[in-house]
Design a protein around this nucleic acid. Structure first.
Lengths: 120, 120
DNA sequence: TTAACAGTTAAACAATTATTTAATCGTTGA
DNA sequence: TCAACGATTAAATAATTGTTTAACTGTTAA
């Protein structure tokens, strides 16, 4: 079996690696997840919602943002499956989704904080 | 000691949580890291460089992009401390940085792929 | 020393994305 | 039912970001 070759052959079996490379779809899926957390405000909101369930007004107050701006971010986080919501009377409560994905992301965030932001 | 209060009191000690919330700087640092991986092309390049050391031309060929575009992304990944480079003759080789941060990110990517992209 | 090759940089453009303001929707209690 | 409140949506703007093209830098070998 022959493979289309790369411009340079550095003799480390790049072609074999290319056989194992995940599908485009996988990279799109994962980069979408990382994009969610790639915004400072959204990361902060997600961190908060990993630790408590809150209504929009309180989230807005905690992160010092207007409620439309927060709503916008909550919408994205929910579309991405990172948070869930429930209405109770006039208020809508948000919290981190109870999934393997969010548990992994949360523990990763805490680990990265320890590694990259000690004593903060 | 008294705390400034939130608009609504849902009786779950949000104020105590606010005492533990990481500094702005920490969220900025982490969201910068996630932004790096929030771009599909950059995530693919980082994945490749976690598995092999490669020159720019080969990376460009592997991800089907122009070398200026790849160079642009490599520059960002290097500025973020995710990859390192060394020149050898006419070529510059890149690979994932050998740090706790990159090991964590790499293992996280592989875990997320398993959870979110099974069989791909 | 100069031509060819590998890589980077810069400027311009295109596209995406975050935030604001204003309007709207849904729920509750007067 | 209607006023007040919480939340969402829409449109507009501002800002950021990715890609292209072209010019440029560094290295090697003829």
């Amino acid at each position: 079996m022959t493979y289309p070759s790369l411009p340079h052959d550095h003799g480390q079996n790049e072609m074999k690696l290319l056989e194992r490379i995940p599908a485009d779809e996988s990279f799109i899926t994962l980069s979408d997840i990382f994009s969610q957390l790639g915004d400072e405000s959204r990361l902060r909101i997600f961190w908060i919602l990993c630790h408590c369930e809150e209504c929009v007004i309180n989230i807005s107050s905690m992160v010092n943002m207007s409620s439309p701006a927060v709503s916008h971010h909550l919408r994205q986080l929910r579309a991405g499956g990172l948070i869930t919501s429930r209405r109770n009377g006039k208020e809508v409560y948000y919290k981190a989704a109870d999934t393997e994905k969010t548990r992994l992301l949360h523990s990763m965030i805490e680990s990265l904080m320890e590694i990259e932001c000690p004593e903060k």
